[in-house]
Write a protein that binds this DNA or RNA. Structure first.
Lengths: 160, 160
DNA sequence: GCTTGTTAGTTACATTTTCAACTGTCATGG
DNA sequence: CCATGACAGTTGAAAATGTAACTAACAAGC
């Protein structure tokens, strides 16, 4: 099949395949939280992260959600404008602020979650239980190898 | 661990995990073809696709590499400016052009491929043979479920 | 020939993302 | 105290991307 000995077949190249699959899923998901709730991807991630880890700082949110600090900063602004998030300066270190979802933000989040869960459930149903498990295992390993499993130093970004 | 019953744990959410893994790989790869050769992601994909399928049209490249036609158009412009690619109008249908890599383009491609292959080889080595196989299987299934395995109608984009 | 509809590819414009420089705060060491 | 350097977060300008409208070419029916 190769025209050249040194040809790389994109269709078999793991990073490319991963990316393509992730891009399709991302796009489909954006239908849910984007079209329906007017959220950008970083905004949704910040929302979801704060629902899970209330009173995080922007830096912590970025580290957890793997968002560059500028994305976090702008997402926080957007969420704050919509009154879905509030800030509280940390008196012990006035450089940083604790971020929390407002009741309105929590309500929005709760309205989104079932859609997201349903989306994942459909995906898993299509895969079937064995292959769902296989996908999870593959991700476990990839995360370990890439140092994404939490046991890692981490530079504070996910590609800026 | 959940603060709310209706909390979605991002760390366990498949689309999010896939995305994060893909983002890290992408970022690391861009070090190779980006920093070293000044290529954008679409440019690299067009280059790789044309190395594999010479004399494709822009549309064919886009379909194969899953790039929106605007990305293909701009990538082709960029590659042409660098004299890595040339166009030849199809006389049978003057709307489309056959795209080919120039000798210079092929040289560049051949200079990149070993880096890419080495990158993948390192990844697979870190995973070990069994888990590499597991990752490939997981991707096979995901591609099937998402209709990315070539057996699909396809709308000509990968998210524009 | 002359519609009408479709397709390949480009371009214009708005939104997003990136990158670097910046502000204000903390920590350390003189 | 007051450097010096590090760090949290913000901002502006440049680059990339997404969307839609556009041009030019084909194709089918009249």
């Amino acid at each position: 099949m190769s025209t050249l000995d040194s040809t790389l077949d994109l269709e078999r190249f793991l990073p490319y395949r991963l990316n393509r699959v992730a891009a399709v899923l991302s796009e489909q998901l954006r239908e849910v939280y984007g079209r329906k709730f007017g959220l950008t991807i970083p905004e949704w991630r910040v929302l979801a992260t704060l629902a899970q880890l209330p009173r995080s700082t922007a830096r912590e949110v970025g580290r957890h959600a793997r968002l560059h600090k500028t994305k976090v900063s702008r997402a926080v602004q957007g969420l704050e404008e919509r009154r879905w998030l509030s800030r509280a300066e940390n008196p012990a270190d006035r450089r940083e602020e604790f971020l929390s979802l407002t009741p309105l933000g929590i309500t929005t989040y709760r309205a989104i979650v079932p859609d997201m869960s349903a989306f994942e459930a459909r995906l898993c149903a299509a895969l079937g239980p064995d292959d769902t498990q296989a996908v999870r295992h593959a991700l476990d390993r990839l995360e370990q190898v890439l140092g994404l499993d939490g046991t890692r130093p981490l530079d504070g970004s996910n590609g800026p």
